[in-house]
Simulated scan of single mutants.
Amino acid sequence: MTESSGTGVEALLRADSVALAASTFVRVFAGVGLGREQARYQVGKELHRQFGKPHSDDHYAYEAIVLQLVLVWEQARVAARAHSGVLILLPDGVRLLAATDATDELRALLSR
């Protein structure tokens, strides 16, 4: 997925969830080694970069999207929640990071 055509929660909610999960994963986990930790807040930071910072009323919508992305990653077994605010890069996550088309690769990982 490329940069959003709009900003804010409306554009975020219109985004294809698998494509958003793939592109966000690649940006958040770039340079993170297998089994290494990445702070969950980096996911929100990446969404802010792409869609703008949420207005106070939209904060919970952004948090819900962050959780949805993490759940997609866990379902695909590319990352897992470890402890408070920490995500761990799993072996299939390394495969996703190396993929030519991250969205297609994530869809394949989700369908197995």
Rank of each mutant, 00 (worst) to 15 (best):
L67N: 15
V66G: 06
A19M: 03
R112N: 11
D101M: 12
V43Q: 03
V70R: 07
V78Q: 03
E46F: 00
A15G: 06
G44H: 04
S23D: 14
A19T: 11
V94E: 12
V94M: 03
Q50C: 02
A22H: 06
L96N: 07
L90Y: 06
D104T: 14
G33Y: 07
A79T: 10
V78Y: 02
E105I: 07
T100P: 05
D16I: 11
A102Y: 01
S84V: 04
A76N: 04
V86L: 08
E74D: 10
L109M: 12
L87E: 02
D92M: 09
A76C: 01
E105T: 12
F25Y: 10
F25M: 08
D92W: 02
G35D: 12
A19C: 04
A61D: 14
V26H: 09
G85L: 05
A108P: 02
R112A: 11
A102W: 02
V28N: 03
L110A: 11
H83N: 11
F51C: 04
A79C: 03
A22I: 07
R81S: 04
V78P: 00
K53F: 01
Y41I: 10
V66R: 11
A19K: 11
S17T: 15
R77I: 10
A99C: 11
V72L: 08
V72W: 02
A64P: 06
Q50I: 13
Q68C: 05
L97V: 07
A22T: 07
L69E: 01
E105P: 01
A102T: 10
L90D: 06
F51Q: 07
V86E: 07
P54Q: 06
A39F: 03
P54L: 00
S17W: 05
G33D: 13
F25G: 08
R107P: 01
D16Q: 09
I88Y: 01
S23G: 14
V32Q: 01
V70G: 03
A21F: 05
A61T: 14
A22D: 04
